[in-house]
Amino acid sequence: MKTAVIKYNSGNVQSVLYALERLGVDAELTDDPEKILSADKVIFPGQGEASSAMRYLKARKLDQLIKEIKQPFLGVCLGLQLLCEHSEENDTECLGIFPVKVKKFIPENTQEFKVPHVGWNELENLSDNPILKDLPANPFVYYVHSYFAELSEMTIAQTHYIHDFSAMLHLDNYYAIQAHPEKSGEVGEKLLSNFLSI
């Protein structure tokens, strides 16, 4: 099995590669369309800012490529947000795979709710979905983000911080997670290995 990790101007890609290495997965970091389209699984990691990421993807036509992918595809963190329709981060039109809007956390009470949302929080209301197979009830995952995707029909797990938001989304071959599975201990490894077995 070949796993392609999409190479673009995103931080923290190395952690995703190390996590895949721990799972014994043959993964390649690449922006070569042929390699991406011929991989069995595609992972779209992310950390950074939405508008500059979209500009980079468009300049290399990776935006079109991502829309054409038929294999199981996993967006992580900023990767989830970029798969949505629009982000409030610098008013950015995103890829539109999920017809969902990405909004900024605006706490009413800054003493109680710090932004970014940093740390371990629970996945709740898990759907019956192969990527969520054999997880403990309300598993903890590691978050670092200031923007969130709204709840939608495609939400397969949600988390509460200030609001309930889409912790994970799924539509056809596209999966996405807002947390960092590569940094979420055993739960994160299970999510990644579940995705790789789809």
Binding site: Q14, S15, Y18, A19, E21, R22, Y142, V144, H180, E182, K183, S184, G185, E186, G188, E189
Partner: peptide
């Protein structure tokens, strides 16, 4: 360390 552990 990054290769060995799965927490931040």
């Amino acid at each position: 360390v990054a290769k060995a552990i799965n927490i931040p």
